[in-house]
């Protein structure tokens, strides 16, 4: 478990202190995948680095597994860091070492392991990330996705309980992003380790995260379960991220030529796949126009979000029936 208690960070710029992160209170539970989303400069990279103390908080505290680590130094700090893996946007592999030696690097840092033990662990890790055939290659000979897999293997080498992901998929193409995210989700399930990832893409959050915090100009403006934040974003920044993920950026609820009130229906879980609308139409005789919508998954949970124009004499009955089926309805202003 990771806890920030009013942790803030300011940088000295030309003699003045410029805040990068305003005091943040946040708890990340053990075993969850926690997303931190924000635009560049929002402070997410700083927040992530407070966890392994690559950045020290200017004020406030950081707790890991209930222990105040804010002022950890020397050997204590290095032991703490050995228990926290980290992967990076630009992979940050050692170009002068082979894939196998990159993965072995953290194991050799802390000593006490013989070569055979290290070699066995490296084989096991390369197997896990699907790179067993590339052990003797140099990073420059690998694709971006393969480099990130080496990064993941290296980060897991010391059997950490926490994995920090710094924009880990931002330099990858969509297909590679999907496979790396799948690997992260798989690692989270199989090894039970806590993953904290920062990103500027809501889609990354939607695919792998359990909970999310939205950072805007150094403030946490919204946090909660991904489904709640994704389906019912409250803060303007969050809405923009969700709109980007839905590819409906810049388009409002403006549907010229459509009459009647507009409703946004949010389905979650089993309700997503039930024939609710057709039974409502049959029972109440209302009519509807489907204006926009998306049916997809948030991590493993199916969801749907549809914008409809609905009209008919028994509109209220229809809405009540939809609500009774566990579907959220919001009237959309137009």
């Amino acid at each position: 478990m990771i806890r920030f208690a009013a942790a803030s960070k300011s940088y000295a710029v030309d003699g003045a202190l410029v805040p990068a992160l305003h005091p943040v209170d946040l708890t990340i539970e053990a075993g969850e995948v926690f997303g931190i989303i924000g635009h560049s400069g929002a402070g997410k990279s700083t927040l992530l680095r407070l966890i392994n103390l690559l950045e020290r908080p200017t004020s406030g505290k950081v707790f890991i597994d209930g222990r105040d680590v804010t002022d950890a130094q020397g050997a204590d700090l290095r032991r703490l860091r050995a228990g926290i893996g980290m992967i990076f946007q630009h992979f940050n592999l050692l170009s002068s070492r082979t894939v196998a030696d990159n993965v072995a690097f953290p194991l050799r840092l802390h000593g006490g392991k013989d070569d055979a033990t290290i070699a066995a662990r490296v084989d096991e890790l390369l197997e896990l990330v699907g790179l067993a055939a590339h052990a003797r290659k140099y990073p420059a000979q690998l694709s971006g996705g393969q480099k990130q897999r080496v990064g993941i293997a290296r980060a897991l080498a010391s059997r950490p309980s926490i994995l920090l992901c710094d924009e880990a998929t931002s330099a990858l193409d969509p297909q590679t992003t999907a496979s790396v995210l799948e690997l992260l989700a798989d690692i989270n399930r199989r090894l039970g380790l806590t993953i904290v990832l920062i990103t500027h893409e809501m889609d990354v959050v939607r695919r792998v995260c359990d909970r999310v915090a939205v950072l805007d100009a150094g403030h946490v403006v919204e946090q909660g379960a991904v489904a709640d934040v994704f389906l019912h974003p409250r803060h303007a920044t969050t809405r923009r991220f969700v709109a980007e993920a839905d590819h409906r950026e810049g388009r409002g609820a403006d549907f010229p030529g459509v009459s009647g009130p507009l409703f946004r229906l949010s389905f979650r879980g089993d309700a997503t796949y039930s024939p609710l609308l057709s039974s409502v139409v049959r029972d109440t005789g209302v009519e509807y126009n489907l204006l926009s919508g998306r049916v997809d998954r948030i991590k493993d949970v199916p969801y749907g979000q549809l914008t409809l124009a609905m009209h008919g004499e028994r509109l209220d009955d229809a809405l009540a029936q939809i609500r009774a089926a566990g579907v959220d309805i919001e009237e959309v202003a137009r």
Partner: peptide
């Protein structure tokens, strides 16, 4: 030498001495 590689080594718990001998010198060979 890529700053990111140095940061990654710090994140893995390397001492400054280890960063010099195992990262900076080999990477800048």
């Amino acid at each position: 030498v890529d700053r990111g590689v140095i940061e990654a080594s710090q994140a893995m718990g390397a001492t400054t001495g280890q960063i010099v001998t195992r990262v900076l010198l080999p990477e800048s060979r």
